[in-house]
Write a protein that binds this DNA or RNA. Structure first.
Lengths: 200, 200
DNA sequence: AAAATAATAGATAGATCGCTCTAGTGACTG
DNA sequence: CAGTCACTAGAGCGATCTATCTATTATTTT
């Protein structure tokens, strides 16, 4: 087979979950769109829909984490990275008819108060993203504390902009939030440089 | 009756939708928790679950809009308002076990690609919030353009912080995003004052 | 080649979904 | 006092939900 059945199931589920949510997506729809036999879903995921959901969150989270890493390359300018990342997110939104934004946010809000294993999976993914982005900011000379705060602030801006953009069918929130995030990174880096100059 | 059946249905639905989503909440659960007869739901909402959902979004949106207005009072300091609003949001999160954040964000992400009337309702609510907050920033001396951008940026930060906070079960994102938003408002107001001094 | 394992295939169970329907109650109104 | 209308009350319908079950076909191992 070209692409494994399990992988097709996970990929289709990821698309459907992010667009219409976890509860709003039926297993019948998943196997139908994945071109997979119904029995195969429970062969690969004995834990049923919940196990599939958790695996989809972690897989999608890892892929999106790689996307973040691709922009925030070690040694590169974090200001440009921030600007480019938000611009890319806006472009993806337009190209997919405002469907593909954050791969896990829709599910995260659904399960945070109702499903502990899946909530934990979302939390792990968010923590990985924050830690990864913060690590790059540390490399740019910011303190650990400042880097973490900036990474959280940027991610929050991005996630919130996605919520607004999808509902409003406009990329304006992503562009505005991107500009604000870029400014924040620029100022943080500039302050750090100024402090170093004063000391050195 | 102390509180009307229709109102009880809307209030319970609002709580359930924001916590477990629209698709994840059954009409049987709503009437059971509202202590309402099943038939009454379809008496008050002939359009069924979708009509109820749309009304819940608009009602909850209006209530939360009043909350925003209560902080951003005309003539008051927008910097303090921003700080206090985020602090209040963090407190509510803690007090409700990270359940009550934005009243419509969960539903907004679920329906944005699947249900046009409900998506439009969410869009209307978000636009009202932005316009309302932006109007107060204009009164603080900012340009219309700058006010709108700042309002969108603040709302995006808040919404995204809610997503992270609920999944991580921590108010850190709300506190960090609140500090960043407060800084942004302070700087915007300061710049405006500086420009006025230079001209005057 | 035989045996064991992996994956496919789909019928079907049992519960729950949103919703319709009829019947009944209680409070105003002519 | 009869009639009307808003609301209550819940049985039950067809559809759909997740999950299990048996049976069959590929693939790998011995």
């Amino acid at each position: 087979m070209a692409v494994g059945t399990k992988q097709r199931i996970v990929e289709r589920s990821a698309e459907l979950f992010r667009r219409q949510g976890f509860a709003g997506t039926g297993v019948k729809q998943i196997v139908a769109e994945a071109g997979a036999p119904f029995g195969s879903l429970y062969h690969f995921f004995p834990g049923g829909k919940e196990q599939l959901g958790e695996e989809v969150i972690r897989t999608s989270g890892a892929i999106y984490g790689q996307l973040i890493d691709a922009f925030f390359v070690p040694g590169a300018d974090p200001v440009a990275a921030t600007r480019n990342f938000f611009a890319g997110a806006a472009q993806t939104l337009r190209e997919t008819g405002y469907a593909d934004a954050c791969p896990i946010a829709t599910v995260a809000l659904e399960v945070s108060s109702t499903n502990e294993p899946m909530r934990q999976a979302c939390a792990d993914v968010f923590n990985e993203w924050v830690d990864s982005a913060a690590a790059r900011l540390v490399e740019s000379g910011l303190t650990r504390k400042r880097s973490r705060a900036l990474a959280i602030s940027m991610l929050a801006s991005l996630e919130g902009a996605f919520v607004l953009a999808r509902a409003l069918r406009s990329t304006e929130p992503v562009e505005v939030a991107g500009a604000a995030a870029t400014d924040a990174v620029r100022e943080a880096v500039a302050k750090r440089r100024a402090r170093r100059r004063a000391r050195g």
